[in-house]
Design a binder for these strands. Structure first.
Lengths: 201, 201
DNA sequence: CTAATTTAATTAGGAATACTAACTTTGCCT
DNA sequence: AGGCAAAGTTAGTATTCCTAATTAAATTAG
């Protein structure tokens, strides 16, 4: 008997296989949406991802090494993509850092325009969630955030700035508390990518 | 104000953005798991995906054109990957079909071995679901299956063999019914990839 | 029943995505 | 000062992915 997640017969007998197979299809959808946008703008998927990331994160995270970790690719892959973005004039390299081996990446005005035209690539997907009730959205988010924490714990997603892995986070049963904001958090307040994140010691 | 799904600040005020951002991270995890397995076996991601798909679907679906639709890439991309798989002796081409332009792809014995060693690439993810209650799994699956149906309706996922899009499916309120199996379906009985699927007229 | 169109697959040519290994420069630590 | 580690690049290669053009077979239209 075949116990593969990707065997449709097996899926009928195991709900978790079905969920994983479903998430895999949703993965495909992200790929499709990103490529679609990429083709229209004459810019490649990883290049778009870098631009969008840089647009929304603090300077300290925007260098070759950390981007490589973020996107789970090697440094040469990022280095190459960054070179192309620089040639296209979409980014600026800032060497004014204490460590002269490294530099930070900023968007140029042209780069900002590209981001404005691409960062909504996933909105068709967000719109579909309107068909799901608020309550179901909350339990969906709860499941997703736990799953991501697990993925992080098992080093499948190496970089993650979630509350669960943050040193300011405190749990008591079903209660969540942030020691930095000094307040209780509902599950839907849990952040997947917090600006104030600091890893546990 | 920045309304991007990928802006962590905006995510705090909009749960659906957070869900989408989370699903995007999970997408990344699939990519990581697939690449990991690929590197170990000296075979590339798309090649693995083709082998796994062929292993679990009927002959009629296993040709260049349909694989291209399934994976949302162009026919030359599949043609090329298939050529390499053939050179590696992992597949067999079967031209015994009424249409002489086309052929079906089968796994060789060697190909079956590769599938056996790769098709579990997503099991680490399935295992994580054990931390989630049965009830939450059901509502998670319910949300995912609806989302996939929407993605299919909007032509983001062009190929999909779900109950919702099948001509044997009948809905009455919250009830699901399959006219082929002649039975009522619980939401967790809904299939994402049914062998008996036939598109609505 | 031939001619035109469509479809399946491949070929050709090119940009981008990945990798590993080797290298340069800089920083850090003893 | 010497040695090791880290940031980024360069070089070389396989693969992924595209579009456009080609070949051959099947279908449709007149």
């Amino acid at each position: 008997m075949n116990k593969s997640i990707f065997d449709p017969e097996y899926q009928q007998h195991d709900l978790s296989s079905k969920i994983i197979a479903g998430l895999e299809r949703i993965s495909q959808a992200f790929k499709v949406l990103l490529w679609e946008r990429a083709k229209n703008l004459g810019i490649s998927p990883i290049q778009i991802q870098i631009l969008i990331f840089v647009a929304h994160h603090r300077i300290a995270l925007n260098n070759v090494s950390l981007l490589a970790q973020e996107f789970n690719v090697s440094k040469p892959t990022i280095s190459d993509a960054v070179r192309v973005l620089h040639e296209k004039g979409l980014i600026v390299k800032d060497h004014s850092h204490s460590d002269n081996r490294s530099y930070s990446i900023f968007l140029s005005d042209e780069g900002k325009k590209i981001v404005a035209g691409t960062e909504d690539f996933a909105t068709p997907m967000a719109n579909m969630l309107q068909h799901i009730s608020k309550g179901d959205q909350e339990s969906l988010f709860s499941a997703i955030s736990k799953l991501i924490y697990q993925l992080n714990q098992q080093d499948i997603l190496t970089v993650q700035r979630t509350c669960f892995a943050c040193r300011f986070y405190e749990q008591g049963g079903e209660e969540h508390y942030c020691r930095l904001l000094k307040k209780r958090l509902k599950h839907s307040d849990i952040r997947l990518d917090c600006h104030e994140f600091e890893a546990k010691l």
